[in-house]
Design a protein around this nucleic acid. Structure first.
Ligand SMILES: [Mn+2]
Ligand SMILES: [Mn+2]
Ligand SMILES: [Zn+2]
Ligand SMILES: [Zn+2]
Lengths: 150, 150
DNA sequence: TACTATATAAGAATGATTCTTGTTCAGCAA
DNA sequence: TTGCTGAACAAGAATCATTCTTATATAGTA
């Protein structure tokens, strides 16, 4: 199936907001557009930088608030990390990550085999497991290249 | 095999420090002991609280510095999270985590099937993958219990 | 168009972590 | 043992990410 056009995504954004009684403000729309236009895993400040060309006096607090809201309602996901600035994932379909421990780059990958790993019995019985993710760690191709060069 | 006694672990700590030219200070020793004596995933401040009974005027900066050092040299691991305070793992053997999204509790589990999942070809070829971890997310038994009660 | 609750901007406040600086001490050599 | 020296430390300032407070603006609606 073909992925949604950005026009379709925007329409979906508007109707989801409506359904939840959230105002559709120019700021929220701009932040949403910045998100869907990115294939990476931006920090709040990255999004802030992308929108402030069009909105020179947007407060960074608005970006923090809005991304937090978007994460709550599922427009974006929060990426697992190691205590630095939060990173968001505009791709909310099930997928997994490779994380470069040297430069912080996060690469996506889809691996259906990993989407439904069989969880230990004790979690099945006592906890409510809502999702599983596999995280690969190491050094990315870019960084390996740099190592060779020097 | 039997797991190491704390005396053996301490001896290992001392020789590892020596091998790396690191001074064996009372502060480092106390922090190391606090770590190996814990079965959870403490924050820097948790460790600080545990050692300050014996060292009332230890600076919290020393705990930050020391945990960071211990993570670099592999005495502890850093736990993946979502941007709150860093959490450390004194268990450096390969294992995986369940994370409660409600209370933040992190439960360990060992699942050899997960330790050597077959990584996508493109990472094998271009990146140096140093480890794989599976993260389960959901609501823990404690929190489910609370939900039922109220 | 007017009203009201919601959202925003600006800046202060907070929490975690790191940096700076002057002091102390662990490891080592005499 | 003693003395030296670089590494480690304590204290507090500084920084970074994030959240809170408050006064103002505005989206949705009558
Ligand atoms: Mn992703
Ligand atoms: Mn663990
Ligand atoms: Zn890299
Ligand atoms: Zn819980």
């Amino acid at each position: 199936m073909m992925s949604k056009t950005s026009k379709e995504l925007l329409e979906q954004f508007r109707s989801q907001c409506k359904a939840r009684g959230l105002s559709i403000t120019p700021q929220r729309t701009a932040i949403y557009e910045a998100l869907i236009g990115s294939q990476d895993h931006p920090r709040t400040e990255d999004i802030y930088n992308r929108v402030k060309t069009a909105f020179p006096d947007m407060s960074i607090d608005t970006v923090y608030r809005t991304l937090c809201l978007f994460a709550e309602i599922g427009f974006v996901h929060l990426v697992e990390g190691y205590g630095e600035a939060k990173r968001y994932d505009p791709d909310t379909e099930c997928h997994h990550h490779f994380r470069c421990m040297r430069c912080g780059r996060i690469l996506d990958f889809r691996e259906p085999r990993f989407d439904a790993l069989d969880v230990p019995e004790r979690f099945k019985q006592n906890c409510a497991v809502s999702n599983i993710k596999v995280v690969l760690e190491g050094v990315c191709d870019h960084c390996l290249q740099k190592t060779v060069e020097s």
